[in-house]
């Protein structure tokens, strides 16, 4: 189960009527539980196109995507052999800007909009709204407020709650932390990590922040010019020679470790994955 890409190609029609490659020969497997994946790459490398294939918003030009056993390819979609809506319930996709989805008068109505579209009755949907609003770190008083009078960070949380209320097995977030201040960003990342840990759901995050990648992800996908150029763990990614060609930043943590080793000859016993580990190891080495 989960999501399987099999040799997927996709092209966009540009404004000048030329076709632009967005995905080239993508083969990829994503499990339906327990993964924490970050997807990185430059603007225009195909990240958003890739995730839009994961819940059948887009159909491959050639090749196929298997989503929870449903085969999505050009022929099946054209002849309406497959139902796309149930897939979108199983794979929840949160868009980059919450403004794209918020439209109801109250936060509660907006959150239950998704579940109701998938046939959940109103009472159950409201119960779910009360749960998910807490999951994203807001309290129940928010439910009766207008989504348009919230701050940027709060809007983002409400839009995520709206997807969580659909109870998807896989949750995908397109640049969820861009524009937030450091505290807001860390708080939101902790929310995702909690969802991943407690509910054992697969989480996929598109991000430009390499610190997020290094500290949180178990697996990293790197897109470059429509190709999937890396699929593996973050530690190997950042020791990879290609990293400069892919225009990626080095995470602060790794940068510091490398610098300490190069310039001061300080060798740490293991490669720390977060600040706390770094502190403790440094303490041991230096004292």
């Amino acid at each position: 189960m989960g999501i399987k890409f099999n040799k997927v190609d996709f092209k966009y029609q540009g404004n000048d009527n030329k076709a632009y490659l967005a995905l080239s020969n993508i083969t990829l497997n994503i499990k339906d539980t327990g993964e924490f994946i970050t997807l990185i790459g430059e603007t225009g490398s195909g990240k958003t196109t890739l995730v839009q294939h994961m819940n059948a918003l887009l159909t491959p030009l050639s090749g196929s995507v298997d989503i929870f056993g449903v085969k999505i390819n050009r022929e099946n979609v054209k002849k309406k052999k497959v139902k796309l809506n149930p897939i979108r319930q199983q794979v929840g996709l949160v868009f980059q800007f919450p403004e794209y989805q918020l439209f109801e008068e109250t936060v509660q109505k907006d959150i239950i909009f998704g579940p109701k579209n998938f046939g959940v009755d109103e009472a159950t949907a409201i119960e779910r709204a009360k749960e998910v609003i807490k999951v994203v770190g807001l309290d129940e008083s928010y439910l009766q407020r207008s989504p348009f009078n919230l701050s940027g960070g709060e809007k983002k949380r409400v839009s995520i709650a709206g997807i969580l209320a659909m109870e998807p097995d896989i949750l995908i977030l397109d640049e969820p932390t861009s524009g937030l201040d450091p505290l807001g960003r860390n708080a939101l990342l902790d929310v995702f990590y909690d969802i991943h840990k407690k509910l054992n759901k697969t989480i996929i995050i598109i991000t430009h922040d390499m610190n997020t990648v290094y500290e949180y992800a178990k697996r990293v996908l790197v897109m470059r010019d429509s190709y999937l150029v890396y699929d593996g763990d973050p530690i190997h990614l950042f020791t990879n020679k290609n990293i400069d060609n892919w225009n990626l930043d080095v995470p602060d943590l790794l940068n510091l470790i490398h610098k300490l080793e190069e310039d001061l000859g300080i060798q740490l016993p293991t490669q720390p994955r977060n600040e706390q580990e770094l502190f403790e190891q440094l303490k041991v080495v230096l004292s």
Binding site: Q52, N55, L57, L84, N85, R88, Q89, G92, L93, F95, Y100, Q101, F113, G114, N117, F118, G162, I163, M166
Partner: peptide, 13 residues
């Protein structure tokens, strides 16, 4: 187009 996709993601057919 993006808004349409975002709402389709929430089950709007």
């Amino acid at each position: 187009n993006k808004i349409m996709l975002a709402q389709a993601s929430r089950g709007v057919d």
